[in-house]
Design a protein around this nucleic acid. Structure first.
Lengths: 207, 207
DNA sequence: TAAGGTTTGTGACAATCCGTTACAAAGGTT
DNA sequence: AACCTTTGTAACGGATTGTCACAAACCTTA
């Protein structure tokens, strides 16, 4: 039971809790109730407590949950407590925004390398990273144990990079481009489109 | 029945289909099967057909769905066929990336205005937008019928902007900062954190 | 024209998930 | 000691989803 695979629903909710907890921590809070988490996630408070109590008794009755502790516990449950290495492709506006934002760092991801093909950009620094030329991909993936590739490039080049990542053994691709990527079935592509999320939000506002 | 509110699940899946359809269209495809959509969304093909068939017979047996037509139908179902106006806050890397990306345009959103407080940035052009000073917020929201505010600003200033948006009557906020925003209950905040989505993807890869 | 393959639209059913209500136990506050 | 808050947990009913199944419609090819 304890070692069971989480269901999609539970894993997705735990991730959302993690997001709120991280934000709350950043705002200086040290403890939070299921009721408060509920307000930020729109997940029923009983559901939240049930999700958590399946893995242990993390809260204090009458008080709530210690934020640091709960973040640690959820990371353990999601088995993502360790360090993970990601490679970022594209040193344009989006790439630079991602590299300098710290969102990945907060969750145990290290941006181990940043690539571009533009000779103007290769060699420059973004935060504490130096932009490398795309031809180093294969070597860097192997040497730095890259597990995730993040694509912040024009759609026209996205598929090529995806192919190269796949042949280097990367199994998770995060695609910010508009391209529809074709990959082998053991590779996960995660695409995120703010406009579509907005449509979804808008629907519930309009009705 | 037809005029019923969509459930969360249906609306969320329809949005995902829309994303894939838009990408597929951009790749030059004109028609797509439920099987193909399933591969990109990880939603069961039967589920997809059932989601759609609740609103009409959009497909051709033996062929699939015409992409343009289906995009139109889903927009109608989501009641987001019209033009919606959004205001973008922050002309830094992320703000510029969003403004020049076209993702919003593809889905019927028009970035009507872009704000910053940095005197160096105010007055400059990003794409076909001119960065305006933040003090114009209230007037622009009223004049241009802004329905959505997108926050691409440092966390420290996010809450202030949210407050000002709320008092101008904006009910939907898209928050890219790390801040945990407090808003009245009739205002929707949508926060998107790539790192958290990555954790979620990673879990299923690791197990 | 006929045969064969593909894909939609749809029904039925079981399994799972989720929201809700309820309540005791534990902690804090006054 | 009395009271309030919040967790942990059980029970139940409803809603959603995955799966199997199959006819009808469309395309391709012989």
């Amino acid at each position: 039971m304890v070692n069971d695979r989480l269901t999609l629903g539970v894993a997705s909710r735990l991730s959302r809790y993690l997001q709120v907890l991280t934000q709350a921590k950043r705002m200086g809070k040290t403890s939070i109730s299921s009721q408060a988490v509920s307000e930020y996630t729109n997940v029923n408070p009983t559901q939240i407590r049930r999700d958590l109590s399946g893995f242990g008794k993390f809260g204090k009755r009458g008080v709530g949950y210690d934020i640091d502790m709960l973040i640690g516990q959820i990371r353990k449950i999601l088995r993502t407590s360790g360090q993970h290495h990601i490679a970022l492709f594209g040193a344009g506006n989006l790439g630079q925004a991602i590299a300098s934002s710290g969102v990945f760092g907060d969750h145990g991801f290290r941006i181990a390398a940043m690539f571009d093909v533009d000779p103007e950009k290769v060699g420059t620094s973004v935060g504490d990273l130096t932009v490398r030329h795309y031809t180093e991909l294969q070597r860097v993936v192997a040497e730095d144990g890259i597990q995730v590739g993040v694509l912040a490039v024009p759609s026209a080049t996205a598929q090529q990079i995806a192919d190269d990542l796949v042949s280097s053994g990367v199994k998770i691709i995060f695609n910010y481009s508009d391209a529809l990527l074709t990959v082998p079935s053991d590779v996960t592509v995660h695409a995120s489109n703010p406009a579509v999320e907005l449509l979804y939000a808008l629907y519930f506002y309009l009705s």
